[in-house]
Amino acid sequence: MDLSAVGIQSSFRILDWGIVAVYLIGIVAVGVYIKRYISNVTDFIVAGRGLKIFLGIATMIGTELGLVTVMYSAQKGFTGGFAAFHIALASAITALVVGLTGFIVVPLRKMKVMTIPEFYERRFGHGVRILGGTILALSGILNMGMFLKAGSIFVMGITGMTEDIHLKIIMTALLVMVLLYTALGGMVSVVVSDYIQFVLLSVSLVATCVLSIKSLGWHNIIETVSALKGQAGFDPFDAEGFGASYVIWMFFLGLVSCAVWQTAVIRACSMESVRSVKRLYVWSSVGFLIRNLLPFFLGISAFVYMADDPSLKSIFLPEGADADPQVTLMAMPVFLSRLLPAGLLGIVAAGMLAAFMSTHDSYLLCWSSVLTQDVVAPCFKNGLSSKARLLLTRVFIVTIGIFILVWGLWYDLGQDLWDYMAISGAIYFTGAIALLIFGLYWKRASKVGAYLSLTSGFGAVVGLKPVQTALGIEVSSAIVGLVVIALAVALMVAGSLLYPDRNKPSDYKE
């Protein structure tokens, strides 16, 4: 899709390129400067023990606002209209409920585990840890398989470099940048750079939303969505749009995002007390709300902008057919490139790219650590030396990096990025929900039930569009996800009742 061929030009100028370069170098320099002082402190994780409240909140919301989140949310706003807001509402409500009740996260914090596979071992034994760690890593790597492509589509849309060859060049360049960034040690938990990111992204996101409303007009936005999407553009329960099953699925996704996903669990388990875990979740409900809501609105604004421009409408909203997901992903950055003045465009792009590198870095570390610590190391009777672990982690980081480059270039998405991420994540979390809830709250949950429940997660791959095409079926990904969750729960209960544990794992205490 070459937009310049149809006369669509971005307002991205040399000034913006300069801002991006200076900001990215600056944010890395801040991290390197701070690290000189703190190289001897190794047991402190961000948002954790003793972090002051404002910096804690800034860090927490800053880490939730990644470029990939903004991209998939904007696409969902573009394709779903205002009805997509229910996803943000569901994730805020679940985070608030988890904060008020301590559901899942408080018992995990009390067990003093730091990762989900560690919980598996403490509750169900060594074998469940290895299987669970393998599924977690596979699901997580598949889940981040489209990160590089989403980041590259953002760069293409905002800079106007929209030819197909640009995608390959930008994806490769971004991967090299991310690997260099990770090799520098990553800024994953340097709170000062997280704070700078929070301020920049908050100001630029709110300013962009206000500019969108000013440019398009609120009534025009409502009327255009109403005219082109009808009831389905506003009512999330409308069968022509999302439908009731999708809304229920989103509440599960909200619970997963805040209490079951590995990165969230690490944060919860590193807090100094049970009270601070609950407080963190109550505050983070604002972050979970905003990280989706504002990008949804930018996606809706892009939809209205494209509908008002005949040359763009023919590309992004073709008559009688749905646009390709890769095209709808590019709608928001193209809209920003036309809305924002030079300078502000560079600031937004710089903040987004810095967030992209930080998110990518922490996920690369997360999944390579899971593979090293939870899959490979437990297979050796005497464990692995620290040197071997470090080497293995580095090999996994580079291997995963190459995988997501190849996967992003060759995988035919065929559905909204959010739905792809929900289903690829479901391979892990459908089983994990059952193991966590029953493992923490039901004494009779057994090892056999855990094995069966974990394995059922593979059924979620039926929710991926290319798999459905190969099987010749068409089922909503929400229905697939809900059925697999029900199956995981049923197998956990049946397996536990039919094959109860004779002995609890030695270090598990009720």
Binding site: F85, V199, S202, I222, F234, L293
Partner: peptide, 27 residues
């Protein structure tokens, strides 16, 4: 449909205002 239009309008502007407030205080 009118209910949902009003609901999402109030929801969006209230959330934007809360977030802007939180962002200023936290910054």
């Amino acid at each position: 449909m009118n209910f949902w239009i009003y609901f999402w309008t109030v929801f969006f502007f209230a959330s934007l205002a809360v977030f802007a407030g939180v962002a200023i205080v936290v910054s």
